[in-house]
Design a protein around this nucleic acid. Structure first.
Length: 444
DNA sequence: TCTGGGGTCCTAGGACCC
DNA sequence: TCTGGGGTCCTAGGACCC
């Protein structure tokens, strides 16, 4: 049996717990600036029509009497860790979805019959009680045969309830729900479905999957068709590795001075770098994001030849990408992100080596090509050292004379080779070096 | 009332390779 | 003269989730 545990109005509930004067009162947690939005509204605030993602300004007009609070993420993280420990004690497979949400599998028994349902209900009651006694918060719990039905069950259980959906109840539970209740149906998909007269899950289940694919694309169309039939074979994914790290900021008022934007990009890169290195990761792709006064979002990204955790590489790349953005209009937001993450260990003479999740050194795949990690042009006469990984080619362009020398671990540096004198693209094979990492020295 | 910040996954097109 | 088919990687944008 799969269970879905979801804390009720989590951020607001933590605030009400920590500040008893807020108990029973409308509480809104979110951005307090002129451009802030609501992260979480307490149930008392929801009664006034306040919702997540609503501009805080609108929430103030709807519910002037509410307490408006900035998020205290560290407090929420701490409480979340406490909750996840409680859940972990009841299962061998726990998938945290966010600070306030997790799936877990109830252990023991096989199949789903009355016995396992009764046991799931008992586990659910225990979990809800333990969360309340240890954190003072209300959690809603859903239990069912798969993730989809467990999530829908916890939604039906709210607030502060428990709901088990038996296999033979699934169709009755699912059919009348609006399509928005299915994960993956947001505003865009909803309006596509409405345009063909599909409003409920039952309507959706009656549509030919091939038509849905034509309307929504391969993955989304097929996936949704299956979910509409209560068909969901997604397994739990414990300890998923992060795939990207990013930071972004919205200006209080739009910025027209690119120096100001560049300054912020630099500081955002620092925030990203701090988290990158804290996790022992390097990144190969850098992305810069901008949102214009007209609320148009643009991104520019660059993939480096090798993962780096070096501030100068990431900052220089981010600065270049911002420069290349067609944004002479004002900016309301800028962001910096990194992806194609690789675990690193502080390395040998020849640079850090990639590690897998268990700390084992990963043999480097044969390189398709290897470029200098810095993609800025070199200054004449500048001597630059780079770690070169694997086999393949070193390439670049040079104005003036470009020379290359290779050094490999445990042997004398190779001869200096002139590879270009005219600014043309040059390519140098790393040759049959039996070594993985090597170091090259470039001069131009 | 004027639209956050942190993420994930998918798609389409182009470059490039064999 | 005109032009294939399979594949990978990268980029930009969009939908969605909490």
């Amino acid at each position: 049996v799969i269970m879905h545990v979801d804390l009720d109005a989590f951020f607001a509930a933590v605030e009400q717990r920590d500040k008893p004067s807020l108990a029973g009162r409308p509480v809104v947690v979110g951005g307090l600036g002129s451009r802030g939005v609501v992260a979480t509204a307490s149930y008392e605030a929801r009664a006034f029509g306040v919702r997540s993602a609503m501009p805080t300004a609108q929430a103030r007009t709807r519910c002037p009497g509410a307490a408006f609070l900035a998020p205290r993420m560290s407090a929420y993280r701490e409480t979340s860790a406490q909750i996840m420990r409680i859940l972990a004690a009841h299962t061998e497979t726990l998938e945290p979805v966010s600070l306030d949400e997790a799936y877990l599998v109830t252990t023991g028994g096989s199949g789903v019959g009355e016995d396992s349902s009764a046991r799931a209900a008992a586990v659910g009651r225990t979990i809800r009680r333990e969360i309340r006694t240890h954190t003072g918060l209300a959690a809603s719990v859903g239990a069912a045969r798969n993730k989809l039905m467990a999530k829908i069950a916890s939604e039906l259980a709210k607030p502060d309830g428990l709901r088990v959906v038996e296999p033979d109840e699934e169709t009755d539970v699912l059919s009348p729900l609006p399509v928005r209740a299915l994960p993956g149906v947001g505003p865009a998909t909803e309006s596509v479905l409405t345009s063909i007269g599909v409003r409920t899950v039952a309507d959706l289940a009656a549509i030919d999957p091939a038509d849905l694919v034509g309307l929504l694309g391969q993955a989304h169309g097929l996936g949704l068709s299956r979910l509409a039939h209560g068909d969901d074979d997604r397994t739990l994914q414990p300890d998923r590795a992060a795939r990207s790290i990013s930071a972004e900021d919205t200006f209080e008022t739009d910025v027209y001075d690119m120096h100001v934007a560049a300054d912020l990009v630099d500081r955002l890169a620092d925030r990203v770098l701090a988290r990158l290195t804290a996790h022992g990761l390097g990144a190969r792709t850098v992305t810069v994001k901008a949102r214009t006064t007209a609320f148009v979002t643009l991104t520019r990204s660059a993939t480096l030849a090798a993962a780096t955790e070096e501030a100068s590489h990431i900052k220089a790349t981010a600065a270049r990408l911002l420069n290349e953005m067609p944004v002479r209009d004002g900016l309301r937001l800028v962001g910096v992100g990194v992806s194609s993450l690789e675990p690193w260990r502080q390395g040998t003479l020849f640079g850090p080596e990639p590690l897998d999740e268990t700390g084992q050194v990963v043999p480097r795949p044969p390189a398709r090509s290897v470029a200098p990690a810095s993609q800025r042009p070199y200054l004449p006469g500048e001597d630059v050292e780079h770690a070169i990984h694997g086999r393949g080619w070193v390439w670049g362009t040079g104005l003036g004379r470009v020379t290359v020398r290779f050094e490999t671990p445990g042997s004398e540096p190779g001869p200096v080779r002139t590879v270009a004198e005219d600014g043309n693209l040059w390519r140098v094979p790393l040759g049959a070096s039996p070594f993985g990492p090597a170091a090259g020295s470039f001069e131009s």
